[in-house]
Amino acid sequence: MSLLGSLVRKVRRSRRVKLTLLLAPPLAFLAIWFYAPFIITGLYSLDMITRAREIVFTPSLKYYERILGWRSGLTIMLRSLYFGALTTAICLLISYPLAYYISFKVKKHKDVLIVLFIIPFWVSFLLRTYAFMTLLDERSFINNILLSLGLIQQPLQLLYTDVAVITVMVYDYMLFMVLPLYANLEKLDKSLLEASSTLGAGPVSTFFRVTLPLSMPGILAGSLLVFIPAVGEFVVPALVGGPNNFMIGNLIYQIFLGARHWWIGSALSILFIAMILVLAIIYLKKVGSVGPSF
């Protein structure tokens, strides 16, 4: 065995070399096209990029200060959190009974029901939102029926309201609540419920003392999966809401492409991302890993 030959073989069989070859291209791609943009956004938010697109090394927090002292901006941020929380709560209230029913009460064709539930979510987010617009429109089929039945005198103004924004978000995001809940309830050992009832607990106390506590991981997972995208929602308020129902996503959009103030827009983006990441980290610490379940 020549020394050179065995060296070449060592390199060829070296796991480190292989690992580097495998990891370098995807990581470089992510670094350049996913992470670098955020760094540039960060530089803008710290006032380190001038109008002439030159980098200056005099960071300043003035845009963050400006945002925090900006009333209508803060109103919109708070509204986003509020809308996000409300959407999550309503999703939970609708999804829990549904998941509970399918998991506990349905005997045959459970899978069919779940697939039937998932099918509408195969349709893209935008198209689902648009489809819901056709119901909310004042010339819509529903308004027409209500009018002809004489239940209302004038067509209901449903579009461009808070109700519309929340309803459509619930419609769009329900999947993310139902799937983790259902997976959790399915895993739950049903004999625990029987054990509870043999110990003298009625169905109500069994539910509140056994089922509900055991399904907390599912509830938490679903809540995070709904809350994070809901807070950052952009399409729904833009299509079925008006300026009075705008959320943080719409605000960022307005500042960037309407006002063209990239510095404030960047600061707002960074604040928003930080908020989401903090939420996600708190969640991951509490619950463990999130697996996208579809």
Partner: peptide
Amino acid sequence: LDALILIPIIIPEITEALSLLVMYVF
């Protein structure tokens, strides 16, 4: 690495899209 892979999935799409636009223009 796990975190680097998970972050793109968690971060709100609109901030990702706008940041990318910022970089393209920059």
